[in-house]
Design a protein around this nucleic acid. Structure first.
Lengths: 238, 238
DNA sequence: CAGGCTCCCTAACGGCGTTAGGGGCGGCTT
DNA sequence: AAGCCGCCCCTAACGCCGTTAGGGAGCCTG
């Protein structure tokens, strides 16, 4: 019944009561949660549905997990499971840009991923590995430890904030059945029909504000930030 | 019973059934939601509690509001109700910095405000007014319309992303009863006790990564961004 | 064979968003 | 004055949710 997009999980034979469920680990739970997330969205992700996904009743989850919050932590880490660091070639700019672009693409690829990740305080092991590597490259580029830490935070805030804003119309489109394009057009229309006397700029720039080329918008902001970071380095390091 | 922090709302005499409730407008609803948010947090904000806050039963809210989502839209706008634009003095940098600092301070001041605002697609009238004014100043500084739109988006993403990350430990502290300082210390401890062979940077920079001076971290990122924006302008405009 | 550990179950609690259907009230038309 | 209508609230209920209590089957160890 569940669309198996991940590699072999869940042999879903209903086991007899009391029988230990084979291969039901926290890891399998996380992957099941990921499948439910993809299918139902974050709002539709419930203990009961995740339990059903692994062929079990809801109360049984509490053997493996303290509560839903902890399941979401697992899910959070599972979202980063197949993220990869960009190749270690080129200057620091291209490497950092690669990091941010990949992070964004990774979040965009999974439904409601930004909402899951946003404001979760403990980074999972997979994200830790990426942070470690990113910090390494920042140090190598010549940034001080304190600056490197702040830069990592800055980039994380930007990417998460950006994807959060760009992904919520996708969620709305998913809910209402409209296409992503219609949602953007509706937003533009909302700006364009504002009282022009009171909001001259919003009306005039409606298309600029809602233009659907979010890739370009993301890269624009990213390049501005990278420009600003470059100024921290001695000129010979660029 | 409710802490009345806003000016006179809600004459809470229990009205007879069928009696029109005096002064129960969408606006009053939004302010009531704001009080409930402050008291219970976003997770604890329910239709029933907001209804009780205005002295009414839950089903009655659906006369004024299509559903909870729409109530959250009202709440979103109410959060921006008393936000003010920074003074129109100084160069574009200080004005833009003022915008971002005020926006951050405003979100931080209200419990869970970042979560409410994050990923809400339709800006309310109060936010529209601020956007209009901000765009105006960007144009005046010499940025093109397209750039101004993107810059507005960029700054919004950064501030929202930043506050989202910084406010969730506050929420956790509120829930667990611990202080904000303890949460930060716990985070630092988590980094410091990582396996040093695998995560040398995270271990070494634990204090840099979790340093509690978030104001400095915010300003650091903000100044980097502003540096990057300055490079868009012709040199005589700075 | 006894005991204990593991892992699942059923049943239930209170709370949630939301809808259906009903009723009193105030203000309008006749 | 009588009737009507639209406003605004109510009670009751639906199906979902997270979570807990208590129990029982299968396995591993002694």
């Amino acid at each position: 019944m569940p669309a198996d997009e991940d590699d072999a999980t869940q042999p879903p034979g209903p086991t007899r009561p009391g029988a230990a469920h084979p291969g039901l680990t926290r890891d399998a739970l996380a992957r099941a949660a990921l499948r439910v997330l993809e299918r139902e969205g974050l709002a539709g992700l419930s203990m009961r549905k995740v339990a059903a996904e692994v062929g079990v009743k809801a109360a049984s989850l509490y053997w493996h997990v303290r509560n839903k919050e902890e399941l979401l932590d697992l899910l959070n880490d599972a979202l980063m499971a197949d993220a990869e660091a960009p190749p270690r070639t080129g200057d620091w700019r291209t490497q950092l840009r690669g990091y941010c672009r990949r992070y964004r693409a990774h979040l965009l690829a999974k439904r409601d991923a930004a909402k899951v990740v946003a404001g979760r305080l403990a980074p999972g092991p997979h994200l830790l590995r990426l942070m470690e590597d990113q910090l390494d490259r920042l140090r190598e580029a010549g940034f001080s430890p304190a600056d490197s830490a702040m830069i990592s935070y800055l980039l994380g805030a930007y990417v998460q904030g950006f994807v959060l804003q760009e992904q919520s119309p996708m969620a709305a489109a998913e809910t209402t059945g409209a296409g992503r394009r219609e949602v953007a057009d509706a937003a533009a229309e909302r700006f364009r029909t504002l009282p022009a006397a009171e909001f001259p700029n919003l009306v005039a720039m409606a298309d600029d504000l809602t233009g659907p080329d979010l890739d370009a918008r993301f890269d624009f902001g990213l390049d501005r930030i990278l420009d600003g970071l470059a100024a921290l380095l001695p000129p010979d390091r660029r």
